[in-house]
Amino acid sequence: MQPPVRHFAIVALRKAGALRFLSHLDYARALDRAIRRARLPVKYSEGFNPSAQISFASALPVGVGGERELCQIELERPLNADEVLRALAPQLPDDLAVVDVRVVSGRQRRHLSGLERADYEIELSPDPDLGMNLLEDAVGAFLDAGTWPVLRETRSGTREVDIRPGVHELHAITPGSGGGGPRLQMSLALQQDSLVKPSEVVEALRRLIADRTQGRVGVDVARVTRLGMH
C-alpha cells in the first residue's frame, strides 16, 4: 500500500539578536505558539497527547544565531507558500523572522533529513595581536593537517573523533569597515556520523595560534552565526 500524500510547509527563519539565547526547546515552543496564533491548519499526531507535527533540521546551541534555520510543518490541507508566510510572519518577533517559505506535497515524510553541510560565520573579538597573517597561517595549518583528533563527551564516556574530514571549507576574512574583529567562515559536516561543531574548529585554531605565539595570543569569539544548511 502506498503511503498517503502529505502536505508540508518548509519555513526558513532568522534567529538573531537577543533571541539567539533561546535554547532549542524554547525556540521550538516559541515557533509552536506562533503557528497556533497564526491558526495554520497544522496536522497533529494521534494518541493520548497529540502534538503538532513540526520538526527541525538541527538544533542550534544556545547563543548561536541562524540566518536560515529550517523547520518543516505538516499541514492538514495544502496551502500556498504565500498563505503560510502571510499568516505566520506577523506572529513572530523581529529577531525570529520568516525568511522564506516553500510548500511541498507528496508521499515523502521527511524533507530536512538530507542536509549534509552547515555554513557558519564566526566573528572574533578585535585583538591587535591577532593579525590576519597569524590567523590565515593557522587556518592553512589546520587545512593542511591530514587528521585533527578531538575528544568528545558522549553518554558512554569520552571518545576520540577526527574532525578534519568534516571541515569542507575554512576561510579567514579581514575585519569589515564597521568595526569588529576578523571573521571565520566555514562549511561543516552536519550528518550524525561526520558532524563537526564550529566550537571544535575554533578550539583547533586557538591551539595552533597558541603554538605559534608561545601562548601569548588567544582567540575570543564574539558571535557565531549559522548562515545556512544544504
Binding site: G17, A18, R33
Partner: peptide, 10 residues
Amino acid sequence: APARYIGGEV
C-alpha cells in the same frame, strides 16, 4: 538559561 535576562517576549 540566558533567556531569563533578555526580555523582548511576545
